[in-house]
């Protein structure tokens, strides 16, 4: 999972993508890799999971070997024009980037190419051994992964098309890139994970190197009816809630395809920084 240069982490909104991205970054850095964890547009949770207030477009050092950054559209657009498309600065680039920023809202694929361009650009760089992307939720993942094909379909020539083709090759190369899906053992999250796997496999867009089930509750080892028979008390009520949830989760855990790693529900953690560090300790042995 951590052996390639680019690792994209996605999943349904609210399942713990940012926590897992941060935890994987912590593990890789502990193993001596130079790691960049990068939050895509709209991801707000990564900074707090890394234990910092905010992340900027320039990589911030979190701990030895671990850096964090956040992609925002206007920076990404400027850099895309300058570095990737080699637009010369003598031209009225401000106006051009205004026009492109409206296009990015309108024409299919452009916005995704611009924002996906950044992590891939960083993955090509010698500065990092591993770039982890805290990606948009699974519902939008497909428009990011298929952006290169969308562009090549719409735009017959030009620099954007060439860049899109490079992006497509990088994502599809199983030696370079892989995708990890995070889910919780709940109906909607598992459904969306299954649909995403089917789509990614059908399009051969990127290798899926793992599915992580998050917030899994451990069985109590007491039959539910033994608890139900007790007189009412908070201990009984909490026991019934727990065993009921374990039962409901079991159904969906069975339905998760390629479910090779499970993370426990973490009780009583007050700060998100604690969560990522704890998850890193738990995942350490299995990635």
């Amino acid at each position: 999972m951590l052996d390639r240069r680019l690792l994209i982490v996605s999943g349904k909104g609210g399942v713990g993508k940012s926590a897992v991205s941060a935890a994987l970054g912590i593990i890789a850095a502990r193993r001596g890799k130079r790691v960049l964890v990068l939050a895509m547009v709209g991801s707000t949770g990564l900074a707090s999971h890394l234990g910092v207030d905010t992340l900027a477009y320039d990589p911030t050092r979190i701990r030895p070997g671990l850096f964090g950054m956040a992609v925002d559209r206007s920076h990404a657009l400027d850099e895309y024009l300058g570095l990737q498309l080699h637009i010369t600065r003598s031209l009225p680039t401000r106006q051009l980037s205004n026009a492109l920023s409206v296009l990015a809202d309108t024409a299919p694929g452009i916005r995704e190419i611009i924002t996906m361009g950044k992590p891939i650009f960083e993955a090509w760089s010698d500065k990092w051994d591993l770039v982890i992307v805290d990606a948009p939720p699974i519902g939008q993942l497909q428009s990011y992964l298929s952006a290169p094909q969308t562009i090549t379909g719409l735009v017959p020539t030009g620099a954007v098309r060439e860049q899109a083709a490079r992006l497509e090759t990088t994502l599809a190369d199983p030696r370079v890139s892989s995708l990890v899906l995070v889910t919780t053992p709940e109906e909607l999250a598992v459904q969306e994970t299954r649909e995403a796997i089917a789509e990614v496999d059908a399009g051969r867009q990127i290798l899926i190197s793992g599915v992580i089930a998050n917030r899994v509750l451990a069985p109590l080892g007491i039959p539910q009816d033994a608890i139900a028979a007790l007189p009412d008390s908070p201990a009984r009520a909490a026991g019934l809630l727990h065993t009921g949830l374990v039962e409901a989760q079991a159904l969906w855990l069975d339905a998760i395809p390629r479910d090779d790693r499970r993370l426990p529900f973490l009780f009583g953690f007050h700060t998100t920084g604690e969560v990522a560090a704890r998850l890193a300790d738990i995942l350490e042995a299995s990635v």
Partner: peptide, 27 residues
């Protein structure tokens, strides 16, 4: 103290479980 649960094993498990969920309620 957890009352009304005669079986000591069940009592211990439910007490520990309540500690987790009670902590979560506090959070």
């Amino acid at each position: 103290p957890v009352r009304g649960i005669p079986n000591p094993e069940i009592r211990a498990v439910l007490k520990a479980n309540l500690a987790l969920w009670g902590g979560e309620a506090r959070r």
